[in-house]
Computed example of a mutant assay.
Amino acid sequence: MVDKDRVEGSLKQAKGAIKEGVGKVTGDTSTQAEGKADKAEGKVQNTVGGAKDAVRDATE
């Protein structure tokens, strides 16, 4: 079973990539920056979820 943080983190990364792309297309640097921040947050959350999965797998 995959940790929910991995799933949520992947979704945040995807959302951030879309938001960043929209910011680039529209020239909105604020939206672009928010997208980059969302992607970074999602990556961290995904990493945390991966660590949880590794610990769970090691203890089973």
Rank of each mutant, 00 (worst) to 15 (best):
K24C: 00
T47D: 13
G16W: 00
V55P: 00
E41R: 10
A54W: 03
S30W: 02
K52R: 14
S30C: 00
L11V: 14
G27M: 01
V55N: 04
V25F: 09
G23I: 07
T26V: 00
A54P: 02
E34M: 06
K12S: 09
E60F: 08
A37F: 04
V2E: 13
G23A: 09
G9Y: 11
S10P: 01
V7L: 15
V44P: 02
A40I: 08
G9D: 11
K39P: 02
G9K: 10
A17W: 00
A37P: 01
G35F: 01
G35H: 06
E41H: 06
G16C: 00
S30D: 14
G49I: 03
Q32E: 15
R6M: 15
D53I: 02
E41L: 08
K4N: 09
G16K: 00
A37I: 05
E20S: 13
M1Q: 11
E60T: 14
G9V: 12
T31P: 01
I18Q: 13
A14T: 04
K39E: 13
K52T: 05
T29S: 11
T31G: 04
G16D: 00
A54H: 07
D5M: 08
A40L: 05
D28T: 05
R6V: 05
R6N: 07
K36E: 13
T29K: 15
D53L: 09
D53K: 12
D5G: 03
V2L: 11
D57S: 15
A51E: 05
V44L: 12
V44E: 09
D28S: 13
A40W: 03
E20R: 15
A33S: 12
K36A: 15
K36C: 04
K36G: 06
D38T: 04
A33Y: 02
T59Q: 11
E20P: 04
G27W: 05
Q32S: 12
K43H: 05
T47Y: 02
L11F: 04
T47H: 05
G27Y: 03
G23E: 09
A37L: 14
T29H: 09
R56Y: 07
R6P: 00
